[in-house]
Amino acid sequence: MKAIHVSSLTPRKEKFDLYNTVLSALTWRKYNGEIVHICDSESAQFYSKLGVWDAVKPLIPDDLEGINPQMFWAAGKLLALREVSSPVVMLDKDFIVWKKLDLGSSIIAAHREDLHSDIYPDVSYFQMKPEYTFNPAFDYSVLPLNTAFLYLPDEDFKQFYVNMAIEFMKSAHDCNDNIKYMVYAEQRLLALCADYLKQPVETLLEKDKIFELQDDYTHLWGEKQKMRENPEYEREFNARCKARIRRDFPEFEQVIDLIERI
């Protein structure tokens, strides 16, 4: 199954992030097949050096088509999805799949999210340009979908979802909110569109069990902030990643030197 990683805006060059990214790409190739890194031009230049993807393609416009990068820092993911054909898996670079997946005709996301109003407010919260309309046919009680992992089997649905999300991002007034608008565009609109078009949805994990012990998926997620705050924790994590790369992917051992020199 074809998968994509996505990078836009200035690439982060933190070692723990790069090690996890490398493991995400190589592990996908080991168990599930091709993975392509879709980037803007600056990110493409940077990530090409690592050499762990089947291809690195600069398909994301550097100006994000005018979308505000402060509010919509993950806009590149939606612009990238528009450019690749389904079926496709979009993996966050801090998400690792440790087994072969059986992917069928249902949309698959990492897990559902609860509709907490501090993250997912009522649509009346959003300050939009006058021509924008919140679709009255949507059921706004549908639970959002976390897209750290996202499998989109159907091109027709994918185009509907990403176009509605890009429209939302282009139609929002500028403000300082960099969470609620972003997760509406990426996570909530996905669930709303799927429900509206009666597309079947599955998740890798149940939302109330994501922190229970399992051996199939790693998501670095909030641990990244902990590593920034705790150098010893980061060193220990990096050492484990390096050992895993050497053990499972000895042919890519040179990537460790590349990361250490960055």
Partner: peptide, 30 residues
Amino acid sequence: DSFPSSGSFGSFGSGSGSSSGSLGYGLHII
């Protein structure tokens, strides 16, 4: 330059509705 790359979604910790301090999962596998 002042914003995370697009793949850094989880760093804002929207998971399970908690806006900050979300933990990762499956780190023991590495």
